[in-house]
Design a protein around this nucleic acid. Structure first.
Lengths: 337, 337
DNA sequence: GCTTGGCACTCAACGTTCTTGAGTGCCAAG
DNA sequence: CTTGGCACTCAAGAACGTTGAGTGCCAAGC
């Protein structure tokens, strides 16, 4: 159906359009890529590619522009992920290696990605469920308030305040703290609900109401309130890439946590690279944008996702290379801490 | 120099220009505001206002537009801060009251401000220096790693990982933890350096290297690494207000922590409202924008700042009202926790 | 049967010209 | 000091023509 030359033409169109941002015509193609055939032949091929929906003309007597379907074919079959240069790799390494904190790792990662790809970067915090409890702390911060702090082995720290009756003694709190740590230390977050259920029985009856309150908040924090945090950077890059849709719509979409979650969350292969092009996106405001995302995490299991968002007219091979490289390095950093 | 009528004309020009975004002419002014004089008279006044630099014409045969100096006069002498409607107050209250976390308070505040003012909101985390230590925790999270968690009375939680020699025992850590808490509990952050200096002397000599490491990180975290966190929201609102300068520059400036810090940090009156108009801003990219900011904090002492940024052509009375109201409510929330 | 040069055709982009009308400054009269 | 009158200016928009990149089709060539 599509012989090699037609695929080569499609590839050339995508590459030229991405770099010039202007519809590409048959003559320009023949000049810039040595396809070994004349413009007239290319025109015939282009007519066919258009008929099949891979490219389109903005108007008669203009050059061709790839469609979402065209980009899809390009990404799937016509391009190879471009590895980063040695210099870029080194830059990533040193930039990330100096992070001293989970927060810091995430912040640096998102900035790095934005700078590297010159697009909007999105990084999700490592998810809670795949990690284990390292420590639970209860700190009184006032007569009727308790601060619950949960520390996980991925270095994440969760905190919540809890309202308690004034009558609760320091002792009761210490008791509960010790018991919680004894039971939960090293416990996978998935298993926490089961383990925690037994705790109240081991306490003197007077302390059980307190335990119930604390445990419910704890469960809420770890399990239900799964509200994964997501950070973005490089929004300014959107302004450069003039999207056909109003920039505002895209910015608005990016400010909604829910949209961001779906953006990263619903991508297919959890470990490898996923690319979502134009109308493949879950939200209408993002129909003129593409997303390149990847899972990342300590060791080999993916614990969260990161990626970049840009105009559908983006440098896929380069972007995919950058995203993949950053995901790997962040994984290494996380595994090391 | 400027009689009452001329001031009234300036006020009318600012109001009209803000609401229409078009240069305002003498006839339109006479129609919409009943100033009791004819367009010709207004023209004379306008000529004078222009001569003094309060207004300008984009080109001959166009209406007048306020200059930065004009806005300044308007803000200082011609406008009164517009209080929020009862409904708006209630909305703020309920929206903020449901926050369960310092993070949550800040996040909700910044979103609220952005929505209320339809502009870009900026909120600085409550500063460390004005708060007191509530608790210090040391948690081993691996053979050669320690997690230092500092909890303050404003509910802020700081964390850092520390590399330690493998030889350190659980006991030494427990010792140090106890000592730190004994000395630092309730200690104002300003006083921490002095207090902390005495700690090593009270430990057995073997534990002093560990103590030194931990203390240096602790000091760094609290004092030197003053890196206040700032969050922003409502960047999409910038796209609506068409700034004469490229939107991109402004977005870029807003992504730089340093610029944001200066934006809020260098404002005059720490407690009250501050307005910075156009070229009064510290960064060239923000010369077409204005900032309305206020200090906020638990009780009466300001611990941090918040504000909004928008085009110089903004509704100052309304924005100032919203910023003031939000600052007050956040203060109440913080004082209550 | 594919490829190619030739050729007529299309149409967005751009430049030119003209018109319109909001807005101004100035002046002389009230 | 205020006001109506008046000539003047100039951005914005409409109308029109020109240009040129790009197309589709066809008949000739390999």
């Amino acid at each position: 159906m599509l012989d090699d030359r037609k695929l080569a033409v499609l590839r050339a169109i995508v590459e030229d359009y991405v770099s010039t941002n202007e519809p590409v015509g048959s003559k320009a193609l023949a000049d810039r890529h040595n396809l070994g055939v004349s413009p007239a032949t290319i025109r015939n091929d282009m007519a066919l590619l258009e008929e099949q929906g891979y490219i389109a003309q903005p108007h008669t007597s203009a050059g061709r522009v790839p469609t979402d379907k065209g980009y899809r074919l390009f990404v799937d079959r016509l391009s190879t992920i471009k590895p980063l240069s040695a210099a870029e790799r080194r830059a990533i390494e040193t930039f990330l290696a100096n992070a001293y904190d989970l927060d810091d790792v995430v912040t640096r990662t998102v900035r790095l990605l934005a700078q590297l790809t010159r697009q909007v970067a999105v990084v999700q915090y490592p998810s809670l469920t795949r990690s284990a409890v390292r420590h639970v702390e209860l700190v009184p911060i006032g007569p009727e308030r308790l601060l619950l702090v949960i520390i996980t082995n991925t270095g994440r720290v969760e905190q919540r305040t809890i309202e308690i009756p004034e009558s609760v003694t320091e002792e009761s709190i210490a008791h509960l703290r010790a018991l919680l740590n004894a039971h939960l230390d090293g416990c996978w977050l998935n298993d926490v609900p089961g383990v925690v259920a037994e705790v109240p029985d081991r306490l003197p009856p007077d302390d059980r109401p307190l335990a119930a309150t604390v445990l419910s908040v704890l469960l809420e924090t770890l399990v239900e309130k799964h509200e994964e945090k997501i950070v973005i950077a490089g929004a300014a890059n959107l302004a450069r890439a003039d999207l056909s849709q109003s920039l505002r719509e895209v910015l608005e979409a990016l400010e909604e946590q829910v949209v961001l979650m779906r953006l990263l969350g619903e991508m297919g292969d959890p470990a490898g690279l996923t690319v979502r092009i134009g109308t493949e996106n879950p939200h209408e405001s993002l129909f003129t944008t593409s997303v390149v995302a990847s899972g990342y995490g300590a060791g080999d299991q993916a614990v969260a996702r990161l990626g970049v968002l840009g105009p559908t007219r983006m440098d896929y091979p380069g972007t995919m290379g950058a995203v993949r490289a950053v995901a790997r390095y962040v994984g290494q950093i996380l595994a090391g801490s």
